[in-house]
């Protein structure tokens, strides 16, 4: 049974202890959930509920002021027990992250192309030239008009939505088996949001990629996810298949979230 699970998080606790401070605060409380291979799990919660922290803990990317307990099994191995050296091989290649804030996620002094090339080349033996061609190929997939021009541009020359699309192109190029997408459509207009969700759908269908889709918007999650987990104040308050949760939310917080997203949808012109 548990062998089918690609990702299985059990009793995850995350504590925060600021440097030089004596107090330790718990931010994530006993969160557990599973993700089957080829499925999409939506993680929904309000701002500050702990979605990003949970996602980053999977790849051991948290700052060392955070400490993590519990277990995160991926393909049978507990990621929390793996040495840094082995985690590094999993990052990008097996599990790729689409970070929350595209504007801040690019190194301002490194070109778009170099971001893509270095990522691919750190997992595959590729010449620079081939990596560059691949970069153009994946950017084309993301509907960029002139990818060969784009790769020599710098992050500050692109808009937020464009950068978000580049993030997805990078993820595509890495061909991971699991994608963690942290609010991939926040702060985008509806047309771009639609386009990006569509790309994620394609990835799921074409490459059979599994996905953790993080969002505060039930509507976004409902489009892609098979299952959904609701986080509130660092605690998992509800989980189940998307249809069930949407029809019959048990927790009052879930109801609020659903109401809010429906209201938003109605207000849309």
């Amino acid at each position: 049974m548990s062998t089918e699970q690609l990702l299985s998080i059990k009793n995850l606790n995350i504590y925060l202890q600021e440097h030089g401070s004596d107090t330790r605060n718990q931010i994530i409380h006993n969160v557990s959930f599973d993700l089957e291979k080829g499925k999409v799990l939506g993680i929904v919660g309000g701002s500050g509920s702990g979605k990003t922290l949970t996602s980053l803990s999977v790849l051991s990317l948290l700052h060392d002021k955070f400490s993590v307990t519990g277990s995160i099994h991926f393909n049978g191995a507990d990621l929390l027990q793996l040495p840094e050296r082995k985690i590094r091989k999993i990052r990008g290649k097996e599990i790729a992250l689409i970070p929350q804030n595209p504007m801040a996620s690019f190194n301002p002094i490194i070109s778009i192309g170099e971001h893509m090339v270095e990522s691919m080349r750190s997992h595959q033996k590729l010449t620079r030239k081939i990596a560059k061609e691949l970069a153009i190929y994946y950017l084309e997939k993301m509907n960029f008009a002139d990818p060969s021009d784009l790769i020599s541009q710098y992050p500050f020359q692109l808009s937020g939505g464009m950068l978000q699309r580049v993030l997805i192109a990078i993820t595509l190029s890495l061909q991971p088996s699991l994608i963690i997408a942290d609010e991939p459509t926040t702060a985008l207009d509806k047309v771009t949001e639609d386009h990006i969700l569509h790309q994620l759908e394609i990835m799921k269908e074409e490459y059979d990629t599994s996905m953790l889709l993080v969002s505060h918007d039930f509507h976004v999650v409902s489009r892609l996810a098979d299952e959904v987990a609701v986080i509130h104040n660092g605690m998992l308050v509800e989980k189940g298949s998307i249809v069930n949760v949407f029809r019959q939310p048990n927790h009052s917080y879930t109801k609020q979230l659903i109401d809010a997203s429906i209201r938003l949808k109605r207000e849309k012109p």
């Binding site: 990317l61 590094r88 990052r91 990008g92 801040a104 690019f106 190194n107 750190s122 990078i170 890495l174």
Partner: peptide, 22 residues
């Protein structure tokens, strides 16, 4: 602690590249 350094790590770049380049 810049987000782009975290993102560089998340792509599995070697620590040497993360520090030296990013």
């Amino acid at each position: 602690n810049q987000p782009y350094v975290m993102y560089a790590r998340s792509r599995g770049l070697k620590e040497r590249v993360v520090i030296g380049k990013h």
